[in-house]
Amino acid sequence: MADFIQVIDPGHGGHDPGAVANGLREKDLTLKIALYTRDYIHELYEGVKVYLTRDKDVFVSLSDRADFANRLGADHFCSIHINAGGGEGFESYIYNGSYSSKPKTQALRNVLHDAIVAETKFANRGKKEANLAILRETKMPAVLTENGFIDNKNDADFLKSDDNLRKFALAHAHGLAKAHGWKPKAKPVTKSPTSRKVFYRVVAGSFADRENAEKRVRELKEKGLDSFIDVYRA
């Protein structure tokens, strides 16, 4: 069976910083969340290939982002953004037009949205629709997430922590996995200490003179006991 193709789109980049406030730039935050999301998905789930529309600080036009996903034949598209405008909390968007995959797009978005709100504890601003080019031009189910308000001090303080950006990323990974039914990777089996073989070493003497040590080895070997000289310095 072919791998599931998930495209993650870090909003803005290059000469387009996105929203800027409280010492933060949207383009930096979205890239970090996207990179962490990709890594979590690859680490946790089987049969999923994650592609990013950008993996560094470069500008990519909206049409190029959509074209990239369309050329890949992606199964799902998730665009990651940070909000602005004085609000607070998390919200998500799908395209507001009429299209055959809209029921599926809504269902997938609903699962992802609920997972992110539950895991980050951010205020839930709702599941919304809008005529956004990045959602309109992609041919597969697509969602855009707005992960807090950069111009809200409380949200911005949260977003300044790399650990909190990882929380958003892990929530995206979990939500996408739940929405698409991805299979978790099997955890490696490690032996418990009680199940490991135990060996005991018997020391038959310590000698300052090597000749005496060699004599003891010969004596033990004559009795059928395997032995060797281990040199150490006190």
Rank of each mutant, 00 (worst) to 15 (best):
M1K: 12
A2N: 12
D3A: 13
F4T: 15
V7S: 01
P10W: 10
G11H: 10
H12G: 01
H15S: 14
A19K: 07
A21Y: 04
N22L: 04
L24D: 05
K27W: 04
K27T: 09
K27R: 05
T30H: 03
A34L: 01
D39Q: 15
I41Y: 05
H42E: 13
E43Y: 09
Y45G: 05
Y45I: 05
E46H: 12
V48C: 00
K49G: 12
L52P: 00
T53N: 01
V58S: 02
V58Q: 02
V60G: 00
R65F: 07
A66N: 02
A69C: 07
N70K: 02
R71G: 06
C78K: 09
C78S: 15
C78Q: 13
G85D: 01
G87S: 03
G87V: 12
E88Y: 15
E91H: 14
N96M: 08
N96F: 08
S98C: 06
R109D: 14
V111A: 05
L112W: 11
L112Y: 11
D114C: 06
A115D: 05
V117R: 00
E119L: 13
E119I: 12
T120V: 03
F122L: 07
F122S: 03
A123W: 07
G126K: 09
K128A: 00
A133E: 13
A133G: 03
I134S: 03
L135S: 00
E137I: 08
E137P: 02
P141K: 05
A142S: 15
T145D: 11
N147Y: 10
G148L: 01
G148H: 05
I150K: 06
I150D: 01
N152W: 09
K153S: 03
K153V: 03
N154F: 08
D155T: 11
D157R: 08
L159F: 08
L159I: 07
L159W: 08
S161G: 05
S161E: 09
N164R: 11
L165M: 00
A169V: 01
A169W: 10
L170P: 03
L170T: 07
H172T: 04
G175E: 05
L176S: 02
H180I: 06
G181K: 07
W182C: 04
P184H: 01
P184M: 01
K185A: 05
P188F: 10
S192P: 03
R196N: 06
K197L: 10
K197I: 09
V198T: 08
F199T: 14
R201C: 08
R201W: 14
V202G: 00
V203R: 10
A204C: 09
A204Y: 14
G205K: 12
S206H: 15
S206E: 15
S206N: 14
F207H: 14
R210D: 13
E214N: 12
E214T: 13
K215C: 08
R218V: 06
E219H: 11
E219W: 13
E219Y: 11
L220S: 10
G224V: 12
D226K: 10
D226M: 07
F228S: 01
I229Q: 10
D230N: 14
